[in-house]
Simulated scan of single mutants.
Amino acid sequence: MRAQLDSYFGGLTGTGATRSTDRYQQALERCLDRLREVMPIVGLRNPKIGRPDLTWNYCGPFDWVVSFQSGQLWLALQLTGDPVFLNAARARRPVFRQILQNRHARDHDLGFQFSLSCVADWLMTSSSEARELGLRAAEALLARFRHEGQYLQAWNPRPSQGGSRAEFVAGRVIADTMQNLALLHWAHRETGHADFRDVAMAHAATVARHLIREDDTTYHTFVFDAVSGAPLRGETHQGFADESCWSRGHAWMIHGFAQSALTTGDKDTLDIARRLAARAEVLMGADSVPVWDYGITEGTPAFRDSSAGAIMAAGVYIIASLTSGDEAARWIAFGDRLLDGLLATCDLTTNPAAHGLLNHGAAHVKAGFADTMLPYGDYYFMEALMRSLGHTQFFW
Rank of each mutant, 00 (worst) to 15 (best):
F240L: 03
A241P: 03
W246I: 08
W246Y: 12
S247W: 00
R248S: 01
R248K: 03
R248M: 00
R248E: 01
A251W: 02
A251P: 04
M253E: 14
M253R: 07
M253Q: 15
I254F: 07
I254E: 10
G256D: 10
A258T: 09
Q259C: 03
S260I: 08
S260T: 15
S260P: 01
S260C: 11
A261Q: 07
A261P: 08
A261N: 04
L262D: 09
L262S: 12
L262N: 08
T264N: 10
T264S: 15
D266S: 12
K267L: 12
K267P: 09
D268N: 14
D268S: 15
L270K: 05
D271M: 12
D271K: 14
I272Q: 10
R274P: 02
R274G: 02
A277E: 08
A277M: 11
A277P: 07
A278H: 12
R279F: 06
R279Q: 13
E281I: 00
E281H: 14
E281N: 13
V282Y: 08
V282G: 00
L283P: 04
L283W: 04
G285M: 01
D287Q: 12
D287T: 01
V289S: 02
P290G: 02
P290K: 02
W292T: 03
D293A: 04
I296D: 11
T297P: 00
T297A: 15
T297K: 15
E298A: 14
E298Q: 13
G299S: 03
T300Y: 13
T300F: 12
P301Y: 08
P301A: 12
P301L: 09
F303E: 09
R304M: 06
D305I: 02
S306G: 09
S307M: 07
S307I: 05
S307V: 05
S307A: 15
A308C: 09
A308M: 05
A310G: 08
I311W: 06
A313H: 04
A314H: 12
V316A: 07
Y317D: 04
Y317E: 03
I319V: 15
I319K: 07
A320T: 05
L322W: 10
L322H: 11
T323N: 06
T323E: 11
T323V: 13
S324G: 05
S324F: 10
S324N: 11
G325P: 09
E327T: 07
E327H: 04
E327G: 06
A328L: 05
R330I: 00
W331G: 04
W331I: 05
W331S: 02
W331V: 02
I332D: 04
A333N: 13
A333T: 12
A333K: 08
D336N: 13
D336A: 08
R337D: 09
L338M: 13
D340A: 10
D340R: 01
G341W: 06
L343D: 03
L343M: 13
L343S: 01
A344S: 12
T345A: 13
T345W: 05
T345Y: 11
T345V: 10
C346Q: 01
C346H: 03
C346T: 06
D347H: 06
D347M: 01
L348N: 06
L348C: 08
L348R: 08
N351H: 07
N351P: 00
N351M: 00
P352Q: 11
H355P: 01
H355N: 06
L357R: 03
